[in-house]
C-alpha cells in the first residue's frame, strides 16, 4: 500500500489494472442484467416489479461499502500522509453519493407499487437518506477551501467522525421507527430468497463493485493527471 504513495507508480499500476476491471464490469453487469431480466422468475407476490431489486440491493450495498472505502482511505491519508489515499477518498465520495441516490430512487419507484407510497419513513430508508446527506456534507467540505490539501485533510477527519457516528445514527433511527409506527415495518421478500433470484443478485453485486473500482481508478487517474497538468502550466508560466 505504501509503495503506491508514489503517484507515478500508482499511474503505472492502475493503468495495467484498469482494462481488466472494465472488462469484468462489462461481463458481470451484462450477464447479471440478462439473468435479472430474463432468467430470474417473477416474484409470486410482487410480480415483475421485483426486478427492481437487482439494481436496488446492489446500490444499497455499495452505498455503505463506498463509505467504508472512503473512511479507510481517509485514515490511511491522515496517518501516513499518503497523497494517493487522499485522492482515493475524495474521488470515491461522489460515486458513493451516486449509489446512495440510485438506491433511494429505485427504492422509491419500488415502494410506489408495493406500499402505495413514494416514500415511507421506514428505518432503512431513513438511514440511507441520512447517509446521502453525510456524503453531500463531505463533498461540500472538501470543495470549500481555496487550498485543496486543506479540504482533503478536513474531509478525512469528517469521514472518520462519520464512521463512528453512522452506527449510532443507524441504531437510533431503528429505535425511533419501532417506537413511532410499529405496524408499518415492511419486511422485504418474506422467506429467505430463492436460489433462482440469489444468483443474478450476487452477480449484479459483483458487477456493481467492479463498476465502482473501474470508475474510481479512472477518476483517480484523471485527478492525478489534472494535478500534473497544473504543475506543468505553472512551470511554463514561471519560465516565460
Amino acid at each position: 500500500m505504501l509503495r503506491l504513495a508514489n503517484p507515478n507508480r500508482f499511474m503505472q499500476w492502475s493503468g495495467k489494472l484498469l482494462p481488466w476491471c472494465a472488462i469484468a464490469t462489462v461481463i458481470l453487469l451484462g450477464v447479471g442484467t440478462y439473468m435479472a431480466l430474463f432468467v430470474a422468475p417473477p416474484d409470486y407476490q410482487q410480480g415483475e416489479s421485483v426486478r427492481i431489486m437487482y439494481i436496488h440491493v446492489p446500490s444499497a450495498m455499495m452505498s455503505t461499502f463506498v463509505y467504508a472505502v472512503m473512511a479507510v482511505s481517509s485514515a490511511v491519508a491522515l496517518i501516513w500522509r499518503h497523497p494517493v489515499a487522499d485522492i482515493a477518498a475524495r474521488e470515491s465520495a461522489p460515486l458513493g453519493a451516486g449509489f446512495t441516490l440510485l438506491c433511494l430512487v429505485t427504492g422509491s419507484l419500488w415502494g410506489k407499487p408495493m406500499w402505495g407510497a413514494w416514500w415511507v419513513w421506514d428505518a432503512r430508508l431513513t438511514s440511507e437518506l441520512v447517509l446521502f446527506f453525510l456524503y453531500l456534507g463531505y463533498i461540500a467540505l472538501v470543495n470549500a477551501f481555496d487550498e485543496p490539501t486543506r479540504g482533503a485533510r478536513a474531509g478525512a477527519i469528517l469521514a472518520l467522525v462519520g464512521v463512528i457516528n453512522l452506527p449510532i445514527i443507524k441504531f437510533s433511527v431503528d429505535w425511533w421507527n419501532t417506537l413511532h409506527q410499529p405496524e408499518s415495518i415492511f419486511r422485504l421478500g418474506g422467506p429467505t430468497i430463492a436460489p433462482s433470484m440469489l444468483w443474478p443478485l450476487l452477480i449484479m453485486v459483483l458487477g456493481f463493485a467492479a463498476f465502482f473500482v473501474t470508475l474510481l481508478l479512472l477518476r483517480m487517474r484523471s485527478a492525478l493527471m489534472a494535478a500534473k497538468l497544473r504543475a506543468i502550466r505553472l512551470q511554463q508560466i514561471e519560465a516565460a
Binding site: V130, F133, L136, G137, A144, A154, L158, N165, I169
Partner: peptide, 19 residues
Amino acid sequence: GARKGGVLLSLLVLPLYIP
C-alpha cells in the same frame, strides 16, 4: 477558513444531531 462556512456547518452537523 472555508468559503460559506455557516451553511456548510449546518450541512455537516445536522445529520450528526439526529440521534
